[in-house]
Each structure stands twice: as C-alpha cells, then as structure tokens.
Amino acid sequence: MIHHKGKIALMLLLPTFAYLIVFIFYPLVDTCLLAFSNPAGPLENFRRIITSGEFWKTLRNTLVITGIVVPLQLILGLALALFVNLRFKGYLFILYIIAIPLALSDVSAALMSYSIFASTGFLNKLLMAWGWIERPLYFFGFRFQDRAFWVIVITEVWRATPLVFIILLAGLQAVNKEYLEAANVFGFSPWQKLWKIVLPILRPSILSALLIRTIFAFQVFGVIWILAGRDIPVLAGEAYYWQTVVYNSNISSAYGLIIAVVTILISWAYITFLKPKSFEEEAV
C-alpha cells in the first residue's frame, strides 16, 4: 500500500520503456552487429568503405556542408530573431512568414529550389528576360557539381534558418527587459548591449540551436538526394544508397554507425566546450 504510487508510476512508464528498447535500443545494437559482420572479418565493412575512395569525398562533403550551413544559419537566425524582437507593428505576421519553412519537408524545399534553379526555371527565365544571359545557366548534373553544391547550401540555409530563429527568439523573449533598461541607464551602446548582455544570456539557446542543427546537418539527405543524387555523396545518402540500391545492409549500417559516432562526438564536444552547466539547466 505504501509503495502504491511508485508502482502506478512504473506501470505508466512501462510502454515508453518497451518502445525505447524495441525501437531505439534494439536497432542500435543490431546496427552495430550488421556493421561489424562480414565473412572477411569484423572490420571488413569499414575497410571497404574507407578504401573505396568515395568515402573521404563523402565525409568531406558532409563536413563542408555542415561547416558552411550551420554558421550561416546561426548568423541569419540571430539577425532575424533580433529584428523580430524589436516588436514593431506587425512583427507577429513576419514571425509567421519566417516560420513557413518549418512546416516543409526537405524534399519539398529541394523541389522549390529546383523550380528556381532548373534549366528552364525562374532564375534562368528572369535573367534571360532582363537580357543578362543568352543561354540558360545549368546548376545540376555531374558537370556542374560546384554550382549544385551552392544551390544545396542556399536551400539548406533557407530551410533550416527558421529553426534557429525560433529557438533564439524564444531565448530572447526570456531575457529580462530590466537588464536592458539597466544597460540603458548606464549608457551602453546598442553594440555593447548585444555583446555584453544579450548574447551571454542567450548562450544556452545558441548552444541548443547549434547542437540540434549540427546533428541534423550530419543527417542531411533529402535535399541533396533530390538536387544532386550521388553526384555529391554525403553520409546519409550513402546509407540510403547501399540499402535501397545495392541491398547491402552491412555497409549501410556501417554508414549509419559512422553518422551516430560523429553525432555523439559533436554533441559531446559542444556540451563540453560551451559551458555544460547552463545547457543542463536548460535541458533538464
């Protein structure tokens, strides 16, 4: 009777535990098993991946895209959040407009950017109408990888900046107005207010935004697969390719595991180097 309540609590948590075991824990273990099983030895799958030549390109692409996209998103997201936080008349409307891409899948975002950058897309038509070019510019295809790369970067920035924006805006709204009023009293310049007050207080929000965006940037798949296919290979794309085209679950799992390991390393690095304490308070 005394432990009655504890039993109820446990019973109510049981379904969640069961789910986590079957759909998170088991797949994780199985992924490891698959990734390390090969008649030629447990590390054979990884050896094949690493020596394939494609791998370093794949890893580099993933890292470069993350390294370009995430900082851009952070700067743009912060600028937008500071702007909307001015609370000018109609700021809510702008807030909802910025939130539009939040609702969109990577696949439809990619298709939107395709409608602009396709050879008979709006950009080419516009440039021709203005007479700036005579023949359409090509952005996609094996020969134009570099251009496709930048289209991908623009698309990813467009698609995921709102995410950063919302997190930072939520953080900004939690900043006590009196801190800023105090700063006004003491004669801070707007720039000083930003660096000395707003950004330090925003640090936990910036950290969560960075963390979540980096983690998801490493899983980038839909946009690239639609716009460039395997011309610009990335880790998640390779996992998909090996599973659905080559039907080799072992290699695919190995790629999945690489993504997981990199994700964990990055999360760990962020949390360690950027003040773990404030993050934990935020998270718990």
């Binding site: 797949p27 992924t31 899983q219 679950s249 999945g256 993504i259 997981a260």
Partner: peptide, 13 residues
C-alpha cells in the same frame, strides 16, 4: 536528437 537513420536498416529485417 538521435539519428533516426540508424534505426531504419535493422527495422527492415
């Protein structure tokens, strides 16, 4: 923030 990519392949089997 767990990469869902990892669970796909084992779930197929």
């Amino acid at each position: 923030s767990f990469p869902v990519i990892i669970i796909g392949v084992p779930l197929v089997t």
